[in-house]
């Protein structure tokens, strides 16, 4: 499979169809992989793909404007099914046009939840939870697919939330508050959750703005609460559930639980699943006249 991808990547670069290919390469140690930018055809042999390829590469599509002097116009990207969902969502939000990217889809059986858990193979003990409920192991919308593309059955019913979300929902409100308070106590606002997110595409984040200063910059619990509520709210109906925010968190806070909870809300209330359609509007920038209003007096 990887040979087919490398060959295609070489062709694309040689024919100048793309300026750069973003993919995965071997990382600094045997358990890790790293994002890599391939610009020369002879470098394509660095490309790899296996269950260690956790990173969601579409986040670099947001940063493509930072490299104008390199003539980075059309981007080739190696994408798992979930990454393609992220790209689809970016297109739906007009952050990107379909023509700007060349998507090399890769079939993916799942990735590990954390590098430290890699022991040479993928198994139930180290597979990320998002992969268990994934319905895009075979990617949908891609320009190139290595080998024969099998028919994909996407009729499986929508599955509600990860068990942790349900665990938390089972607690009473005060306990839930205390849980988050305890977790957020560790947060020091490195903003890794923001920077790895493919959908945090603002040039200047609302937390970095000081006039007005909506979110306190210091990492006291008040400021941390405000930041994580803001972050989750800004991702309602946009988050495609890659779970990168939790993986990137150096303090190991499960910030994606918010996104997972809201994913359920959006699905139940508006029947919207992010990352499946380039044309459907994200739920919060549209409405139906008969939306649920049972919470309204």
């Amino acid at each position: 499979m990887i040979e087919a991808i490398r060959t295609q990547a070489r062709n694309l670069l040689e024919n100048k169809e793309v300026d750069v290919i973003i993919g995965y390469a071997e990382g600094s140690d045997s358990t890790r992989t790293t994002p890599v930018f391939i610009r020369k055809p002879e470098e394509v042999s660095r490309l790899i793909f296996d269950p260690r390829c956790i990173n969601s590469l579409p986040l670099y599509l947001n940063k493509r404007h930072e490299y104008p002097q390199k003539g980075w116009k059309r981007t080739g990207i190696i994408a798992k099914g979930c990454d393609i969902r992220a790209i689809t969502q970016l297109i739906a939000e007009n952050q990107l046009t379909r023509e700007e990217v060349y998507i090399i889809g890769v079939p993916c059986d799942g990735v590990v939840s954390h590098f430290s858990k890699w022991d040479g193979r993928l198994h139930d003990g180290n597979q990320a939870t998002k992969c268990a409920e994934c319905d895009v192991h075979t990617p949908t919308d891609c320009d190139f697919f290595p080998g024969e593309r099998p028919e994909v059955d996407r009729s499986a019913p929508y599955k509600v939330s990860a068990p942790q979300v349900l665990n938390l929902m089972g607690l009473n409100t005060d306990k839930r508050f205390d849980y988050w308070r305890q977790e957020f106590d560790r947060c020091f606002k490195c903003y890794a959750c923001r920077e790895v997110c493919p959908h945090c595409s603002c040039n200047i984040c609302i937390t970095d703005r000081t006039q007005p200063n909506w979110v306190d910059q210091a990492a006291h619990t008040k400021g941390v609460f405000a930041w994580h509520i803001t972050r989750a709210m800004h991702l309602v109906g946009r988050c495609t559930g890659c779970g990168e925010c939790t993986r990137a968190c150096p303090m190991d806070i499960q910030v994606d639980l918010f996104n997972q909870r809201l994913k359920d809300v959006v699905q139940e209330s508006f029947g919207y699943k992010s990352g499946y359609s380039q044309d459907e509007k994200p739920p919060l920038i549209t409405y139906k006249t008969d939306d649920s209003e049972d919470f309204i007096q």
Binding site: T34, P35, V36, F37, L59, Y60, K63, Y67, F188, K189, C190, Y191, A192, R194, E195, V196, D216, Q217, A218, A248, P250
Partner: peptide, 25 residues
């Protein structure tokens, strides 16, 4: 450095990094 995404994880985790900011609240 081009793959760096600009989060502050390395600096905040670093035991010698000392940079700080001052704001009024």
């Amino acid at each position: 450095g081009e793959k760096c995404i600009g989060c502050g994880a390395c600096t905040f985790m670093c035991p010698t990094c000392h940079c700080f900011d001052i704001v009024d609240e």
